[in-house]
Design a protein around this nucleic acid. Structure first.
Lengths: 149, 149
DNA sequence: GCAGAATAGTATCATTTGCAACTAATTTCA
DNA sequence: TGAAATTAGTTGCAAATGATACTATTCTGC
């Protein structure tokens, strides 16, 4: 058993390094945590979402989502509007200011991804993506009930 | 920008799911945290290591290592012995009881890895490993100074 | 149409984490 | 030699995190 060859360990190291790198950039330039950024990223797709919808789209748990949305709301980057078909839930969407942040952060994020994949051939990129798909499928089968953070 | 296709996000989700799955098993059966397990895993290779050496081998920061070693020491799974060539540092090694735990946990860990990779062909396993190598190399180049957790 | 179960989201509290400061020992090099 | 800088490891404290419990609302099915 060699830790440095152990797949879950390697995933963890790679993921933490990548996330840490990018998180520092979000934090330094926009004062956003990774979770706030994830919320912005899914809302940036256009459609409003409930907190629950954000949970599903971001693989964050509901407490984390609740806090991220509250922080974004406090900064005026998102706006919540009660739904009349279900008054427990609210639709969350980006404000104009939130859109502006999204428009700046998204390209930055993509540049980081491009930097990570710099030197990967198109074949390698496709392989990596396919292998991650496969891994995700395995994990979905093995996990008790898909939480993550 | 689609979050669900974003590489750092995908790595994070896969890593957290895999780690969480395995962490639950360590915790439930042996009362070990992931960090304690990592320390045991590297010490299980045989050679004693200083805390610093453990840091390098596990990609953990020194505070985390210090705490993990202390907890393992308190449980009698590792033993520390002052070095006389440098009295700031101690060599840490597994006790007999630590070895016994290692002998039980390591196969369990490998079974989990095998479960993750169930359905992967040998080619796919090799590809995954090679792609992670490549990613790690990129990350080493991009990261300010390789910390992680 | 109503009692009980389920769900959206929030609040509480204990634990974990990480940074920065600290002690003690060692190295550097003038 | 010996003062300044560096390193090993620990500690303290503030912030992040997560499990659990809670409120309010909606669904179920009898």
């Amino acid at each position: 058993m060699r830790l440095r060859d152990y797949l879950p360990y390697r995933l963890s190291v790679a993921s933490n390094k990548a996330s840490g790198l990018i998180a520092r950039a979000y934090q330094a330039r926009f004062g956003l945590t990774i979770w706030e950024w994830r919320v912005i990223a899914v809302l940036g797709e256009g459609a409003p979402r409930t907190a629950q919808g954000v949970c599903e789209a971001t693989a964050m748990d509901k407490v984390t989502v609740s806090r991220a949305i509250r922080a974004l709301d406090a900064r005026g980057l998102v706006r919540r509007s009660a739904r009349d078909d279900d008054r427990r839930a609210s639709d969350v969407r980006l404000t104009a200011e939130g859109e502006a942040i999204y428009a700046e952060v998204a390209p930055l994020a993509l540049r980081y991804e491009a930097a990570l994949l710099d030197g990967f051939t198109p074949q390698e990129r496709a392989q990596l993506s396919a292998l991650l798909d496969k891994l995700e499928a395995r994990l979905a089968g093995l996990s008790p009930a898909g939480r993550s953070a």
